[in-house]
């Protein structure tokens, strides 16, 4: 299977791609799975933290600082650091991927909550909403567009980062990119890159659709007369 770029050979070897469609599908699914898992776990961690930060303003500084620090660790260094403890596993990959989503997701939820119009909040309290009813029925629904915007950024970022986990034996489409580099075989690198990019664009588009679907009120034409 060792191939090299040879003079006269086409830059993209369509035949090779056609022969490896099964592999492409497997890697694509693995890529999507790693991404979904990272964003989902990231959300599970971020959501309560963000609500806590929203309720206790003073805790937002430290939370933002810690997640910001995680965000700045170079991904290669992080994986290298983790491998001795968690070996070449999905766990290692996910610890890294999840860490990078936290800053974006927490910030999304917190800014969504603080963007809730204060008059809506006051009217709701005045009408007899309890604190938790206010959060679940007013504040979170109204924050949804901003929260989903955060999820979009986190997801697109994660899709890109998943390719790096190829270095520790996971990596989804990163597998092809790494293979292309190792074997000086541009077809594989290009395939991995383009599919990864395409996946990011597709998922981003789908999330925009979801956002429109769940927040119809945020997208109505303003027509103020009858």
């Amino acid at each position: 299977m060792i191939r090299a770029q040879v003079e006269g050979q086409p830059y993209i070897d369509w035949g090779w791609i056609a022969d490896h469609m099964d592999d492409v599908w497997t890697r694509l699914i693995e890529h999507s799975y790693l991404t979904f898992l990272a964003v989902a776990i990231g959300m599970l961690i971020s959501f309560p933290l963000a609500i806590f930060a929203h309720r206790h303003r003073r805790s937002y500084g430290p939370i933002a600082a810690v997640t910001g620090l995680l965000y700045t660790i170079p991904s290669l260094a992080l994986f290298a650091f983790l491998v001795p403890y968690t070996r070449l596993s999905v766990l290692t990959a996910e610890i890294g991927l999840v860490s990078y989503t936290l800053l974006i997701l927490i910030r999304g939820v917190v800014s969504g909550l603080s963007g809730v119009p204060s008059d809506a909040r006051e009217a709701a309290l005045g009408m007899g909403y309890s604190r938790s009813e206010l959060l679940w029925r007013i504040e979170l629904p109204l924050s949804t567009p901003v929260i989903i915007a955060g999820i979009r950024i986190a997801t697109v970022t994660t899709i890109g980062l998943v390719t790096v986990t190829a270095l520790i034996g996971k990596g989804g489409l990163g597998f092809f990119i790494l293979m292309g580099i190792d074997r000086n075989f541009p077809t594989a690198s290009l395939l991995g890159s383009i599919l990864s990019l395409g996946l990011a664009v597709l998922v981003d588009f789908l999330l925009v659709r979801v956002e429109r679907l769940v927040t119809p009120w945020a997208h109505r034409e303003r027509r103020a007369t009858i």
Partner: peptide, 22 residues
Amino acid sequence: AVRLRRGIGYVIQSIGLLPHRT
């Protein structure tokens, strides 16, 4: 307080209609 407020109509200047509800 919550029960009390449900029994008292409340209107503010900015009205505070809930934007996500019809």
